[in-house]
Simulated scan of single mutants.
Amino acid sequence: MGSGTLGAARTPARASEPTSRRASGRASGRTASARTNRGPAVAAENRRAILAAARRLFAERGFEVPLSAIAREAGIGQGVLYRHFRSRLDLAIEVFDDNFLELEAAAADPAPDAFDRLWRLLLAQTVREAAFVEMAVEAQRLEVTYDGDARLAALVSLALGRAQAAGTADPALTLEDVLVSWRMAFGIVATAPNPAEAERLLAQRLPRPIPLGQPLAPVTPGG
């Protein structure tokens, strides 16, 4: 009787062990699954951190800022950065796509002064992030497929045509005039000692696009 009782007591214990192991296995599986599923979330977080760090450092130090500095600023290893972006140019193109979103919103505005505001926004972006223009120049130099020039030309053409139809822009002004004026603006920004001086010179010399039919005075910082 006693032996039978002990046997009965031991039997449930043995039977419960597989159940316990199965429960533990399921919990372990859920934990492993949770760790596995964090991969995409971590990758997305890293990408956002890289883009934010790149925007800050491009603005502060220019297009040639070392990628190692961007990785440190983002709090990730340089290898992680290269898994997301193959080159500095790839990274810059993605960072500055936000600039185009701003310009597109300004160009789409049907207000009569939209072209003037688009122009001033373009100048402000150039002062704030000269690396934006350096990136476009680098893309041309490397003959990389990049539609930035075409996108900008389309936006300016749309806003300029609307402004000329409304009588708020010189009818003699052309798309090429505007783009040449913008390149002049970049020259001022690139050679000015600081952003404040660049803004002063731009306001003084390029308050709005200059028609090519008029003589263009040489632009030199501090002149």
Rank of each mutant, 00 (worst) to 15 (best):
L51K: 02
S20I: 14
A43E: 07
A43I: 01
N46P: 02
N46C: 12
R38V: 03
A43W: 01
E45H: 04
E45L: 08
A32M: 08
S24F: 06
A43M: 01
S20N: 03
R35T: 09
P40S: 10
G39N: 04
A32K: 05
A44H: 00
S24E: 13
S28F: 07
T31S: 09
S24N: 06
S33R: 09
P40V: 06
R26N: 11
S24L: 11
T31Y: 13
R48T: 14
G25A: 15
G25V: 08
T19F: 10
V42R: 07
G25L: 12
A41K: 02
T31V: 15
R30P: 03
A23N: 11
R48V: 03
A43R: 07
R26V: 15
A23P: 00
R47T: 11
G29F: 03
V42W: 04
R35V: 10
A49R: 01
L51C: 02
R21N: 05
R26E: 15
S20V: 15
L51H: 02
R38G: 03
S20P: 00
P40T: 07
R22C: 05
T36K: 03
A32S: 10
A41M: 13
I50R: 01
S28A: 14
S33M: 14
A49F: 00
R30T: 14
T36Y: 06
L51T: 04
T19P: 04
A41G: 06
R38L: 14
T19V: 15
A43P: 01
R26H: 09
A43G: 03
P18T: 04
A32I: 12
A43Y: 00
N46W: 00
A23D: 08
T36P: 00
T19R: 05
V42T: 14
R30G: 03
R48D: 13
G29P: 03
I50A: 09
R22D: 15
T19S: 11
R21K: 11
R48Q: 14
R35S: 06
P18W: 00
A23K: 02
V42D: 12
R22N: 09
S33W: 09
R35N: 08
T31L: 14
T36R: 12
T31M: 08
R35Y: 08
N37F: 05
S33G: 12
G25S: 09
S33E: 15
R47Q: 08
A49Q: 02
A27C: 02
R26I: 15
R30Y: 10
A34T: 10
R38I: 07
N37C: 10
P40L: 00
A23E: 07
A32Y: 06
S20R: 09
A44T: 03
V42E: 08
R47L: 02
T36G: 09
A34R: 08
P18S: 14
A41Q: 11
I50K: 01
R22L: 15
T36V: 14
R30N: 07
A32V: 11
A43C: 06
G39L: 13
A41L: 08
R22A: 13
